[in-house]
Design a protein around this nucleic acid. Structure first.
Lengths: 106, 106
DNA sequence: AAAAATGACAACCATTTGGTTGTTTTTCTA
DNA sequence: TAGAAAAACAACCAAATGGTTGTCATTTTT
């Protein structure tokens, strides 16, 4: 298994998706993010680390607080891949149709 | 850790994304899919099982072959989530602007 | 100055993940 | 009909994942 830390893997975890959703409204510190999740602050911090590493959030120190801010441009990678895959899939009969049209012509 | 087997987790793995890409051009059997990947056919079969379980591909028996066909409608979930998150994020200053406009009025 | 809050760091743990090899059954082909 | 091909089944393995608890340093708050 190769070292992976990309956007696809980052959004695979439902907790991380909820964190992103929460941060999409505005910056929050780690304790605030942890609110309403039934897990420890340390677990949240680990998720934050992963999101930060793949560029979906940025951090800034503010006294003793670590403020996290969403930066969701990186999600384009995901949309791009999905769009491309669906495009290919929608055109999957093109070759067959071209062949059929060709034989019809003969 | 809760039992997860959703589309987000399915596309988190790069090998599975490549399988989807390959299948988006048309149906293939497991051996054909395994071509060009440096891993065993059994490993491919496991990935296929996961993709099948979350509805991204369907299977059909054809003699001794197991034919896999992409069914990429399920990827809408991903696009929807990304779109929603980015929308919220783009509007993240709305509340602040509303507040500023309000105070300006007074 | 004392107490509380924030979060970093580390060690640990169970489960999942992505892969392997070996065996067996079924189906196709020479 | 004998052998090859396709894939299912099972057992195994190392590393990654998502979580825990405990300790410590630094800021705030009272």
């Amino acid at each position: 298994m190769i070292e992976r830390r990309d956007v696809f893997q980052a959004i695979a975890d439902p907790t991380r998706r909820m964190i992103i959703h929460k941060l999409s409204h505005g910056p929050l510190n780690i304790t605030q993010i942890g609110q309403d999740f039934g897990i420890s602050k340390q677990a949240i911090a680990k998720h934050i680390k992963i999101l930060n590493e793949c560029g979906l959030i940025t951090m800034s120190q503010k006294g003793r607080q670590q403020v996290c801010e969403a930066r969701l441009d990186g999600l384009d990678q995901v949309t791009d891949w999905v769009t491309e895959s669906r495009k290919l899939w929608n055109n999957r009969f093109e070759k067959l149709e071209a062949f059929l049209n060709n034989t019809k012509k003969q």
